[in-house]
Design a protein around this nucleic acid. Structure first.
Lengths: 178, 178
DNA sequence: TAGATTCTTCTACAGGTGTAGAGGAGGCTG
DNA sequence: CAGCCTCCTCTACACCTGTAGAAGAATCTA
């Protein structure tokens, strides 16, 4: 479908050049489509961003590996796969910053809805599951951010390797402790 | 000094509109300076971004409260103050994403250099201080990000309140446990 | 004070950008 | 076959952007 072709190109562009690089014509070029195509499918820039964000959500949702038997392991695998999909995750961060001024984007982007995190915290025996769930969410978000754009981007293990998954797992195990 | 006036306006602009809003003329308007001023002080856009980043580093460094007697408390106060300075911290995130494509920016932006974090982890009795230090850094970064742009931005306590500091402190205490 | 130097303002211009609409290509329905 | 509709491509235009240089104002030095 042409629309997906366009939003996929948009995601790559944002990852490579930042939101500033996201222009109708640049997307046309990136996708190898004739000039004007993007503008026809997404008349306004805001519509283009919304399309990009919807696509991000679809792609990322498809890559969540939860395992009730081994929560830390499942989360580690999930997070590592997001690190591997570097461009997509970078685009997501750019979109989250954008959502600071366009709140309607936020609902689509925010990970691990509060409820699910709190349930997990309760299952693990945390005292104040609501609060602990929020802290766990924050920690997971931080792990990715740190490894992808923060200090860990230069020093951490290479995403996609067993070492990377194990490092994440160790960190997550600590974070999940009640 | 006029240069600081300009970089401060740039920081606010980036916080409010994202990197896309950072243009020479927009900075002029924001700072109340005649058109062309920003362009005179920072001839290229890249120079303007570097100026902005330098200024960010100066401002943020001035707001670190470390207390060897009460590490969690000091960190909580520091993080909360960064949440209060919302614009500055948002601008920092935008700049960090930018640093993904301009690596020379990264050295200025990355918090809690590896060494200091590892020392802290060692002092707290962590087994593998190098790794634990990285995880702690990631966690702290995540706490801010979560509260400022992630899921916690709509549900968390208001920055600058005692409740906010206590919430952060609770989270940090858990994170510092060996 | 006179001259040199730096700081400030203005203006120019070649390109890029968001958005809209006109019209063509191609296929489907009857 | 004709008519219709959807999808696609092209072009237009008003505006914004990065960057550079010219000229004036202010400040310093001797």
């Amino acid at each position: 479908m042409r629309k997906d072709l366009i939003t996929d190109a948009a995601i790559e562009l944002v990852a490579e050049l930042g939101m500033r690089g996201l222009t109708h014509r640049a997307v046309d070029r990136k996708a190898g489509l004739p000039e004007g195509s993007t503008s026809a499918y997404f008349r306004t820039r805001r519509a283009l961003i919304e399309g990009l964000v919807d696509r991000l959500a679809v792609q990322e949702q498809a890559e969540i590996f939860l395992d009730p038997e081994d929560p830390a392991g499942g989360l580690a695998k999930t997070l590592d796969s997001w690190l591997v999909e570097r461009n997509r995750t970078l685009a997501r961060y750019a979109a989250m910053l954008e959502a600071t001024h366009h709140p309607e984007l936020k609902s689509i982007l925010v990970h691990s809805p509060r409820k699910r995190a709190a349930e997990m915290a309760r299952a693990l025996g945390h005292e104040d599951p609501e609060r602990a769930g929020a802290h766990i969410s924050a920690f997971l978000e931080g792990l990715i951010f740190y490894r992808l754009v923060g200090g860990g981007s230069t020093t951490g293990p290479t995403p996609g390797t067993e070492e990377s998954v194990q490092d994440l797992k160790k960190a997550i195990e600590k974070a999940l402790r009640p």
